[in-house]
Design a binder for these strands. Structure first.
Lengths: 236, 236
DNA sequence: CGATGTATTGATGTGGATCAAAATAAGTGG
DNA sequence: CCACTTATTTTGATCCACATCAATACATCG
């Protein structure tokens, strides 16, 4: 599990996507190559709350988020929705499209805010993947990383308390999507989303956050959490 | 989630690995190609309970299980071990080794019974993967499938009861590793392993199995469960 | 026949979900 | 700028599915 951002020489800026890189999916590819890949994509804009694809749909397109926020989730038959991943710029999703014969999407993707993404058709991304084998390597790495994250999450769900899970989730989000301000790291996330990512009910999430606020570890306003003392959230 | 084996025209035999195929990792590759790949592997035998690699080890080798059973698991800091996957013949693990620069193993692998596996060094499997791009495709498919299974498991853990989870786990195991007998499908699994795969305590697993036995759905003896009426285990 | 892992069965406890209700904070459109 | 709607948040009270604990019984095997 990623140790938060206390160590290292404060390079908070862009942990996920190095400067100028579209997405990890295209790392290690020459500039010309990336240009070629980019040329094969079309841009699609969606409004907040708009659905991009649903669980089980045939994977016909590969996406890379450029602007905005999205949610990758799974709707259970019981009705409740499990939030699998927050999508942030640079994230690739619909990776099953890279397969010669695509498997269905594992979850549903929808925009949280207005968003802009790059889209490739199956045939065209396949062609590119053959020209640039690095893409396959990157895709495998990305999916393995997702897998690791789920294993972590799953193990955490079985072995850790709600408080630990919420704390780790908050730190990890701060890591990936936080804005660093003088007062601390600000994370744009609702109480409910945070709980959903940590597998904690929104009620419990609220109580825990309030507890931390009393101790001065964080402050919160609607839709935002400001982390003052990340190290106070680390338990183990 | 895989619908159990009630429908379809009873092809119970080899759902995971088609006849003569070493592993899904090498599907779609010519016989000559497979021979070449096989030639690059060495065989390794391990005894029951022997560890193959540990969580976080640098991924130096790719494995395919040929004979026996293994467990792929994760040890939590709290001490309890989460069983991630039962390894059965044909399963590939250590797939991170396929990456140009390998990521660490996500979990630990160890033999349950005496086992035999094929092993490739990083350099040699890389060379082969470049000669046979199909390998990369297969690997991505396999990992995506693992990912889907974990998402399923995770969603199930959040939205389903212990009974449903245990039932589904048992059915799925029967699917993958069961021997079809006149009386039903026999699964070699201890009470505890079953519970671990379903994220249910061994006590609860025992109680649930006893309940099913009373209803005539299954019978059990130490280390074995015989499923008489798979359809009675399906809930939804 | 100890010794060791597995299974059963009952009693007890509890972490958090769930339910209910109200307060607060943003939009939204007239 | 206000009235209205809709989403988020809080707080308290209640509940329960399961884990946990404890003790015993059962198998298996060297």
């Amino acid at each position: 599990m990623l140790r938060s951002d206390k160590s290292e020489n404060g390079h908070h800026s862009n942990p996920a996507t190095p400067p100028n890189l579209l997405s990890k999916l295209f790392s290690g590819i020459s500039e010309d190559g990336v240009a070629e890949i980019l040329a094969a994509a079309r841009t699609r804009k969606v409004f907040a709350k708009q659905m991009i694809f649903a669980t089980g749909d045939k994977a016909t397109h590969l996406f890379v988020l450029r602007e905005g926020r999205g949610r990758y989730s799974r709707l259970a038959k019981t009705g409740d929705e499990v939030l699998l991943k927050m999508l942030v710029p640079g994230d690739a999703f619909g990776i099953g499209t890279l397969l010669e014969s695509p498997s269905p999407y594992i979850g549903s993707a929808e925009a949280i805010s207005d968003a802009e993404m790059l889209v490739w058709e199956h045939a065209s991304i396949r062609r590119l993947a053959i020209r640039h084998p690095q893409i396959a390597d990157n895709a495998l790495r990305i999916v393995l990383h997702y897998l690791k994250r789920y294993v972590d999450r799953h193990v955490g769900l079985v072995t850790k308390t709600a408080e630990q899970r919420l704390a780790e989730t908050l730190l990890s989000l701060g890591h990936r999507t936080g804005r660093t301000l003088p007062a601390g790291v600000q994370v744009d996330v609702t109480n409910g989303q945070l709980g959903a990512l940590a597998d904690v009910s929104p009620f419990t999430a609220s109580r825990l956050l309030s507890g931390w606020e009393e101790k001065g570890t964080v402050s919160k306003s609607r839709g935002k959490v400001l982390i003052h003392l990340p190290e106070a959230l680390v338990v183990d």
